[in-house]
Design a protein around this nucleic acid. Structure first.
Lengths: 135, 135
DNA sequence: GCCGAAATTAAAATCATTTTCATTTTTATG
DNA sequence: CATAAAAATGAAAATGATTTTAATTTCGGC
């Protein structure tokens, strides 16, 4: 018979996914904090930063999560989810993030067909936000 | 009289720019190597990695260069140049890069006008390339 | 040639992320 | 339930890219 596929779905992985449903473009430490502070679920929580990193790598490999880069020296993570697909405007001055609902990618999908199997894509715009422009 | 503007345009900065005209999506160490090996210009070359990093930060601040991220743990750099504008397809398996000449950004520019002053944008597509799909 | 500002560098520091490894938890099975 | 093997976990150490520091060198103008 076939080797049963390695089953893998650690508790920490599920908890990190849970966190990512609440957090936008979060870093690993932020995710850990959210998990460990998250009241209500009380004591069976608490995860180490190591586990969070491990879970995130797993989730990225499995294409459930995608890493983002805002050029701030940290990796940020977000659900790789068609339903809530969006992109980011990153202000170089105040570092505030604006969410961009439109996705310029649709047009390309068809062009790429057969050439490249897309797992995820990142589109980040860097510049100055309105409020930094006026001040 | 007016203070003469700080003159700043170190040799290393110019040399790094020169290197970036030859190299695509290069890392700082790669740029240093290119500079220091570059024959012909012989002995007045040789730059330290420190200088390369400093020059790159300068150039990014001045919007002459933009940092790229291929999710490989290093920052890569490229000229921020309208004339040779392009994007990247990054294969998660073989890590080879394909250049994507079309830019899906044009449509958005108009939408953003007045909202956000764009300095540069990154658009990277991650997935599997043709050859990794067939093998 | 001398002076001071700016540029350069080597070495040390930083800091996010990964690895190691010993321990604990979960799972499969009798 | 008992048990053993496998997987998950976390603390501490290691890694590695980038930045900072502090000391030295280069260079333009006098």
């Amino acid at each position: 018979m076939l080797k049963s596929p390695p089953r893998r779905s650690a508790k920490s992985t599920r908890t990190v996914l849970e966190a990512l449903q609440m957090l936008n473009h979060a870093t690993a430490p932020e995710i850990m904090q959210w998990i460990n502070q998250s009241p209500g679920h009380a004591s069976d929580r608490k995860v180490s930063l190591t586990s969070v990193y491990r879970a995130l790598n797993q989730l990225v490999d499995d294409l459930h999560v995608k890493p983002l880069n805002f050029n701030d020296g940290q990796i940020r993570y977000e659900l790789n989810n068609q339903r809530m697909h969006h992109h980011h405007l990153v202000c170089s001055n105040c570092e505030r993030i604006q969410v961009l609902d439109s996705c310029p990618f649709e047009h390309l999908l068809t062009q790429l067909e057969g050439t490249f199997q897309v797992h995820y894509h990142n589109f980040e715009v860097f510049g100055l936000c309105q409020s930094c422009l006026s001040n």
